Amino acid sequence: MSKQLGQDYEQQAEMFLVEQGIKILARNFYCKGGELDLIGLDQDCLVFIEVKYRQSQNFGHPNEFISTQKQQRLYRCAQNFLLKNPVYQSHAMRFDVIAFLSAQANPDWTKNAFGSW
């Protein structure tokens, strides 16, 4: 997937989440070893959001492409975000996935996709 296409889907995910009442705090938060696509607040819950896209489900749902190693990188980036933004350390937290399939009008939103920590 091209970088531009990825950015387009991240922007679509952001618009979708804002419509659902999520306040976006950060986009493309980079840290050593990884990146968090979006970070938002769902009321008082801090949400780290991974955006995935697939043209088809022939090889599985986009959520299935988040390996254990990828989850560990996301956890480390979330910890890095919290170190840089201690005001959010007392919030409940979760990891969500916004998954796009080419033929869908709206994305699949999986809340707490791979457990909280």
Rank of each mutant, 00 (worst) to 15 (best):
M1K: 10
K3T: 07
Q4I: 07
L5Y: 10
Y9W: 04
Y9P: 02
Q11W: 09
Q12T: 01
Q12V: 02
F16M: 05
F16P: 00
L17K: 02
Q20N: 05
G21S: 03
L25D: 04
L25N: 02
G33D: 00
E35Q: 07
E35T: 05
D37F: 03
L38F: 05
G40S: 07
D42H: 14
Q43K: 15
D44H: 07
C45K: 15
V47W: 04
F48K: 02
E50N: 10
V51T: 08
K52L: 06
R54W: 05
Q55H: 12
S56G: 03
Q57V: 15
Q57S: 11
H61Q: 08
P62G: 01
E64R: 09
E64C: 05
S67T: 09
T68E: 15
Q69T: 13
Q69A: 13
K70S: 05
K70F: 02
Q72L: 11
R73V: 01
L74E: 14
Y75P: 03
Y75V: 10
R76W: 09
C77V: 00
C77N: 08
F81E: 09
F81H: 06
F81M: 01
F81R: 04
L83A: 13
K84Y: 09
V87S: 11
Y88H: 10
Q89N: 10
Q89E: 08
Q89M: 11
S90W: 06
S90C: 08
A92Q: 08
A92Y: 05
M93A: 13
M93K: 15
F95D: 09
F95C: 11
F95N: 08
D96W: 12
V97N: 12
I98H: 03
I98G: 00
F100M: 05
L101I: 14
L101V: 09
S102A: 15
S102K: 14
A103P: 05
N106E: 15
N106M: 13
P107Y: 05
W109M: 05
K111D: 06
N112H: 08
A113T: 07
A113H: 10
F114T: 06
S116W: 09
W117D: 11
